[in-house]
Design a protein around this nucleic acid. Structure first.
Lengths: 230, 230
DNA sequence: AACACCACTTGATATTTATCAAGTCACAGA
DNA sequence: TCTGTGACTTGATAAATATCAAGTGGTGTT
């Protein structure tokens, strides 16, 4: 039921935990579990009360919402990130389901420990605030993009941001196209057409490789919303 | 430059301030301003760094984003609520602009004071966390609605929630229809058609009055997303 | 009372996107 | 190597929504 110290290095480095006292951090890890999941494993389900704060240590996690069997991807998380922070803090039902996109390692910190530590240690509380504020801003940006950009423009912006993050004009799709489509709020068919349309605006796509061949042309087309970083 | 004590009663009662020490609260109010704005006054502009945490004390405030002159309403705030919490906490550019929808009173707390108090007093930090988590969840719900419901379904859900909040089947639109349309992510024309369409599903609209004539029928049509409270 | 303004509504049409239906292609397993 | 599976693509069509263009109606002003 506890996590070995050797495995906590990268977790400790997270903004959320960085400033905590060694003692509180150790106590928290002692009550947490580091669990391995296969690909496509369901981790949490929308509507349930959160038992754990989750940390993606390895792999990738799909956060999605469902309605009548239709699902939409709200966020995709890679190491090292945290999820269902808000539900844990408020002890309210989760708004999203989560499943692994590949074999993954997830650290699970019991909700009560999170809330208790939160009360006890200011440094941890600050970490939670920073995390929440960042996520809040991130969804806000997604909403703005959804409301004010066409599907093709959203894809164009996503490509620009991915290239920027990769530091080069060529990068690999980290996930299936259909999943990316859902994340960008469109169908797989629309994704396919959008990427084809972008060939005229400085993007080349072959297999899972995307190349930005004309950054300024693409930027002009994308007309990014201010601060739309993600 | 300071706020009279008599005016702070309702502010003090906010979850954000409720648990604070009298001393810190007084110090904060001393450095804050309670300002009156006419209708349609611009309060903050997207992209700027936040100088103040704002509290809507009286009136109503429209939080919106702009792109090429087109704007979309992200949230509408009534007393007593707080805005640009995330930007203040992170000291990053605001993602939304704000303007009054009617003559309003706004309490403005300087950002530095917010951050300083946040460092100093755990109770206040907790208040910030609760507020952020609540807002994060709220935008998440809006995004889910946008992604998975049609415009008419979003309106249906909004009506159901409004009626529930009002505690009766008849209520008044608190804002212009065009503004509500924007908030629900549609054009005024689409709003008009949507409300007409809902006449067949237990809704009656005349002027600024909306009446739910058949709640179960409307609920069946709206098929609300789990936990979609706002 | 007449008028002007503006939100709202309604109609016609265009655009965007989803849906349905075949394909095509790559890859894993027999 | 063959074959099946599933993701992806492409085409045809439908649905949802926006846009453009007149109206309509209420309110406040002169």
């Amino acid at each position: 039921m506890s996590v070995r110290l050797a495995e906590t290095q990268s977790i400790r480095a997270l903004p959320l935990f960085k400033e905590m006292s060694e003692q509180n951090f150790a106590a928290m890890m002692d009550l947490s579990m580091l669990q391995r999941f296969p690909a496509r494993a369901e981790i949490i389900r929308e509507g349930e009360l959160p038992d754990f704060l989750h940390v993606v240590v390895e792999g990738a996690v799909d956060l999605f919402a469902t309605r009548d069997g239709v699902e939409t991807t709200i966020d995709i998380l890679y190491p090292i990130s945290i999820f269902i922070v808000a539900a844990v803090v408020r002890d309210e039902p989760q708004l999203k389901s989560a499943r692994t996109l590949m074999p993954s390692q997830i650290l699970m910190v019991p909700s009560q420990i999170v809330r208790a530590t939160f009360e006890r240690e200011a440094a941890f509380a600050h970490g939670i605030v920073a995390e929440l504020a960042a996520r809040y801003r991130s969804v806000t940006r997604v909403l703005k993009n959804d409301r004010m950009l066409t599907a093709t423009e959203r894809l164009a912006n996503w490509i620009l941001n991915s290239a920027r993050r990769a530091g080069r004009d060529e990068f690999e799709l980290p996930i299936e196209k259909r999943k990316l489509a859902s994340y960008l709020g469109m169908t797989p068919e629309s994704y396919s057409r959008a990427i084809t349309a972008l060939e005229s605006y400085g993007v080349h796509s072959r297999g899972t490789t995307i190349t930005v061949t004309d950054r300024s042309r693409l930027t002009e087309f994308a007309r990014p919303i201010l601060n739309a970083d993600d």
